[in-house]
Design a protein around this nucleic acid. Structure first.
Lengths: 235, 235
DNA sequence: GCTCTTAGTGTAAAGTTGCAACTAACTTAG
DNA sequence: CTAAGTTAGTTGCAACTTTACACTAAGAGC
């Protein structure tokens, strides 16, 4: 049967396809993204989103390919993951008609062990407010990263996405701080807690508390790992 | 410079890439999607989302390719358009590792002139509640279409997306009816009008009214063609 | 000129939000 | 052992929004 089919390659040349990742973490300095310095042409020496080709023998599907890239670059195995979109045109890669399938991943920065790949001389975190670096990324990665950041910022308003920037166990105050830093404004404590209670996506870790030099705070965890819930109003 | 670069094709075989469209329109029978009957293997005889290959010599970018497919199949030139996502794995097409870049388009059904393409013996509208057809689409188009419908249904709750299912000039009552049919519930008239007024995305066509055997209704148009606005609460 | 139908507006009760004050539980200093 | 400091978590209330529904408006048809 396969032999009887017209093979699209006979008629149409195929575009180049890469899988690229915008890996975000939150630090003291704000939202940061993991970039790799390109070790080969094109754009040798420029910072770029970490990415790779699809290994048609090895990768079962796009998520597997993205997961492979992530694990290669960060050593992180199970982060939050979501497709940002596909970016494709004739000019973004000088080698020809190309396509970037972009995912964004949210991780806890201290979980990362940066490693080095073959085509890459360096891997480093960069603040997304570092305008000079953000404006000079390889390929069209400046525009792609901008789309990913916009998506992330929008989702902060009406989803529980920011929880994935925290470690597995966290307090409500820590979660509120993450929202406040991403939104750039302070939130009311009681309103924040009401929203979180409404969507019922976290549960207290019985007896586990964050202890400091003041009242201990209840630790919580996600009811469903890697899940995201939607508020029915903005936060 | 291009000669000095490592060509990804030298190392990695490229996946097959198609651009597929979920073209929606609203009729008396509800939400419908335009499907094409496949005229060649694989899946000859099955209904499928209209799609095509990227023409690397002809298409400037992905949107251009999607627009070309849409115009070929429907004759419609300027609809609302949005990327749904990429679906890719090793098994969805028996010819090998393949990728579908899927867009959804919203159009006014009476604007369509269905035409026939080379690989296609038939083009027809199908109700998305026609379970038998929806469950037996070619490739993984059943899952892709489900994702597109879910996206559309979700966006009805918090955006002005449904306006694109109406002709250029429409009344507020017509718009409310579109929302009600997509949501499957009735909405309060004054609340609906308040929401629409808040986002300030339409303008009255001065003096133009829809006339019937009752009070005439003001006609409106989009302030910005093909734009979509977001409510800050659900509808 | 009355009735019917759909367009478009007004209003009062119910619900939600924003702000601030309050209570609670711990550490540390003295 | 107690008072001060700090952060966790709850409560109260006035101001604002939303909801349900009733009302007014403008046409056609009889």
């Amino acid at each position: 049967m396969v032999e009887a089919m017209s093979n699209p390659e006979d008629i149409h040349p195929r575009p180049i396809v890469s899988v690229d990742l915008a890996i975000f973490a939150l630090t003291q300095d704000g939202l940061e993204v993991l970039l790799t310095k390109r070790g080969a042409e094109p754009f040798v020496g420029s910072w770029a989103l970490p990415g790779g080709w699809i290994h048609v023998d090895e990768d079962r599907d796009l998520e597997t390919a993205a997961q492979r890239v992530l694990t290669d670059k960060t050593g992180v195995a199970t982060p939050y993951f979501e497709q940002v979109g596909v970016f494709g045109n004739t000019t973004r890669d000088p080698r020809g008609w190309s396509l970037s399938v972009t995912y964004m991943a949210l991780i806890t920065q201290n979980a990362v062990i940066p490693t080095q790949g073959g085509n890459v001389t360096d891997v480093a975190w960069h603040s997304i407010s570092d305008e000079a670096t953000m404006a000079s990324l390889a390929f069209d990665h400046t525009a792609i990263l901008k789309a990913a950041v916009t998506r992330l910022r929008n989702k902060v308003e009406y989803t529980t996405l920011p929880v994935h920037l925290l470690p597995e166990a966290f307090t409500l105050s820590e979660l509120q701080t993450v929202y406040e830093r991403l939104l750039g404004r302070v939130l009311d404590k009681s309103a924040f807690r009401k929203r979180m209670a409404e969507v019922d996506f976290i549960e207290p870790l019985a007896g586990k508390m964050r202890r400091g030099s003041n009242r201990p705070a209840q630790l919580y965890q996600l009811k469903q790992a890697r899940s995201t819930a939607f508020f029915d109003r903005t936060i």
